[in-house]
Nucleic acid binder design. Structure first.
Lengths: 153, 153
DNA sequence: TACTAATGGTTGTCAATGCAACTGTTGACG
DNA sequence: CGTCAACAGTTGCATTGACAACCATTAGTA
């Protein structure tokens, strides 16, 4: 019998799927799918990042990133500019259209979070956020170490 | 600016993706993908459920469930038996092959959870599990209400 | 400076997933 | 009893995502 706390992954998976569906429905009118909004969110804070940097920040495969950015570009939310110092790389910049969308996107995310977290007290929300951040950071660190030792073989 | 706790979804998404990848790699030799193991886990506790019931328990689309069960059947982990009382429905039963796999599957899930949760104390793990369960249950309840009012229109 | 390894991006392939349309079965109600 | 809605399952389609092979460029090194 699996102990309760080992079902953490089950709830994580459920919440993730529900959230994706919710966000996708909210932003559908703007041609933003659940695979794109997290890139916009990151760019709001760090405009001009490369695709590689976006992939690293979001821990998303660079192929997935390339396609997401292509979609955003096709929909007019970002522009790609060649990096002069490194002609392999792009800078990904937000357009005005993306900036105008920011309040609505934030709104949608806040709504979803409120739906999810409404049963938690403000202190619990902080606790939950803190624990999720800690385990994400730690898991990430583990994976990187694992890669290193693997490469060292 | 989005407050910290509103990034809960970002970590949920990351952890979900990492977990899927981890589990898929661990179980690859047995032809079990990340989309199938949760059905096995449920069947270990509730053998003979219908696909509809599995979908409801896991909150997974019934089309996705149909395909996952097909894969499990093709790989020899489950058998479908027509429900005599309701010829629309199946009972999904585990095979011996699936039962033999149970320890290894549990092992893999425990390992992933340990990797994720190793930075948390036992009390924190319980807290995290409790909060995730509460918000999952609550979100689910909300969605159902939403459907009801939608249908009532 | 030439060779080689690492890096940034793109693309093909495949799995997981939601949604919608469809079939066949059941059940409820006039 | 017949009709019609609800239900269980299947399938087509689109999206998200990982992985790997590949190209071009850059950087490290002999």
């Amino acid at each position: 019998m699996i102990p309760d706390e080992m079902l953490t992954g089950k709830y994580i998976s459920m919440l993730n799927r529900l959230g994706q569906t919710y966000l996708a429905a909210k932003m559908k009118a703007h041609d933003i799918g659940s695979g794109q909004y997290s890139f916009l969110l990151t760019l709001y804070h760090h405009d001009g990042l490369s695709q590689e940097a976006l992939s690293a920040k979001l821990l998303i495969d660079k192929g997935t990133t390339a396609r997401a950015i292509s979609k955003l570009e096709a929909a007019g939310y970002v522009r790609r500019k060649k990096n002069r110092a490194d002609r392999r790389a792009y800078h990904v910049f937000l357009t005005n259209k993306a900036r105008e969308l920011q309040p609505e996107l934030h709104q949608a995310i806040m709504e979803w979070n409120e739906k999810m977290l409404e049963v938690l007290s403000p202190e619990e929300r902080q606790q939950l956020y803190g624990m999720l951040k800690r385990i994400s950071d730690n898991t990430l660190k583990n994976l990187k170490e694992c890669e290193r030792t693997h490469n060292a073989e």
